[in-house]
Amino acid sequence: MEERSKERSSSRKNIYRISGIVLAVLIALLLPVICGFLESGAYYLNVINYIFVYTIASTGLNVMTGYSGQINLGGAAYFSVGAYAVVILCNAGVPTLLSVVLAMLVVAFFGFLTAVPAAKLKYHFLALATTAVGEVVNNLLTVSPGGITNDTHGMFVKALVLFGFKFKSDASLYYLLLIMTALCLLFTWAFLHSRTGRACVATRDSVDAAGSCGIDVRQYKIIATVVSCVMIGFAGFLFAYLNRYISPDTFAAGKSTMFMSMMMLGGSGTLFGPFLGAVLITLIMELLRGIQGSGPYMQLTYGFILLIEMMFMPQGVSGAISDYKYKKDRRRMEAAGGDGKDA
């Protein structure tokens, strides 16, 4: 009797879950249309597009920092290299798709260069070193010889043209970014559920034990870093064509900190954590921007939120949710009795 009611409730849960997913997908597909009816719809759509880009960047960062234990405070470096590489190539006449591929190779190479020495640094010093890399790249971009990056005056970016279609409107970009974000999340999931991904996570949890399982820790740290960098660089490319303007200022250390905090607030080491973090932080910043305007007040509040989060919930929102869910499961299991833990 009890069994049947349990079955009924679990199948009811399944129905809720499936209908929830269907509803979410529908909303996601129709969002630009919905925004068209809203008063500030254009603004919302624009913000959502940025959320997508930042999600990809934070998810990329998560692969090396959250999942592989390689902290990186210089993420903006890869973000900017990705952006500039694509824009420069496209402006030079290289077809878009090829530009992207080549640019990602450049980012991958750059990531590899930084990953090799980084693999032997321990946590705190890796943090300092990655910050230094970020600073070096930013400085070089700002002062680049021959005006490659047009100095602090920045460059305007022509609209993205892919397969003959011009991505000029927020709505068109929305669909592109939606697909890209979904693909990135899917890729991250696939990566983590592969032998390679598991090896990377193992290096985070116990370097010694990973070695005794046959994992060349240094190799896998490098793999994780390069994969991460390419994802962040890819986000940079998308950013360039969303923002339609890039300058060394847009890629200053603040971006690195932002990716980091999105990942931490949402929950490092979780799949949807960075997405949650991107949503939360972007919303918070836009709210603050509306109330107090850009500048110190906004930054102060944002730093304060991060600080509080580090103090009380360092595992992030997603981490806290899964902790809570796990504790609930544990309690239920123990209540049901006989889980065999008592000797």
Binding site: I71, H124, T257, M260, Q299, L307, M310, M311
Partner: peptide, 13 residues
């Protein structure tokens, strides 16, 4: 490491 980063933002601003 990260917390002091946040702290740095707070104090600087």
């Amino acid at each position: 490491v990260i917390a002091t980063l946040a702290l740095s933002i707070v104090i600087t601003n």
